[in-house]
């Protein structure tokens, strides 16, 4: 089931595309819960369907091993007018929900499996993602 918020304050939202695209992730950009992670290298709006496709790909490969953490949540409503609709008449209904992804954002994390299995899983998830991603481990801690 694709993820979406249970309750929202406002049904529709401004796009805010240009302000996000050129910025880098300053939070959620390191492996926090698992041992390995999949990091986005480009900005995008990651749809709930793409996120779900990644999760399912991971589960099919893992076969009940390990634990997968999803680090982003699609909380941005994106509206779309129906086909052949004339312009105007107000903002359209929400078509899908998306997560704002900046370069550096950690998308998925995995724990409880060896590195080769984690790499295999995250490569399969990466194929479902609309942006270039890379496999990372835990960073140096003080």
């Amino acid at each position: 089931m694709p993820r979406m918020p249970k309750r929202v304050k406002f049904r529709k939202e401004f796009r805010r595309a240009s302000r996000v695209s050129d910025r880098k992730a300053t939070k959620g950009n390191y492996v926090a819960y698992g041992e390995f992670g999949l990091q986005a290298l480009e900005p995008c709006w990651l749809t709930a369907r793409q996120l779900e496709a990644g999760r399912i790909a991971a589960q099919h490969f893992l076969k009940r091993q390990g634990k997968v953490y999803i680090r982003v949540f699609p909380d941005k409503p994106v509206s779309k007018k129906p086909l052949e609709q004339r312009m105007g008449k107000g903002k359209a209904d929400t078509d899908y929900w998306a997560a704002r992804v900046k370069p550096g954002t950690m998308l998925f994390e995995i724990a409880g499996v060896p590195e080769e299995v984690a790499r295999g899983t995250l490569v399969r998830i990466a194929r479902k993602m609309p942006v270039r991603c890379r496999f990372v481990g835990r960073r140096l801690a003080v």
Binding site: M1, M4, K6, R7, V8
Partner: peptide, 12 residues
């Protein structure tokens, strides 16, 4: 995933 689409969240 396909069947669950179309449902909308509650507005506060």
């Amino acid at each position: 995933a396909i069947t669950a689409e179309g449902s909308e969240p509650e507005v506060i």
